[in-house]
Amino acid sequence: MIIIVSVLIIIMLAAAVAACIFKDLLSATIASCMVSLIAAVLFFFLQAPDVAMAEASIGAALVTAVFVIAIRRTRRYEE
């Protein structure tokens, strides 16, 4: 159990760092989506299924959609 959780946390941290350094905004968005998704799983392990559900549907799905639409309207690459 503890191994799964620590692996998840490491992946989450890596995704968070990646979201900061990517110059391609679409990839950064997907990375931040991954952070939310893993956060949702971790919330579930911490026995907070209500929060997990909100995090998964809002953080991972809707926020990503809003970001993708915004990128479509503007530019994909950061200068």
Binding site: D50, S57, A61, L62
Partner: peptide, 20 residues
Amino acid sequence: SPGGGFQGGAVIASGFVLMY
């Protein structure tokens, strides 16, 4: 069970995102 109006609503909205 876990969840509620906000979570359910957000799940439904994510279905619409898939539709778009």
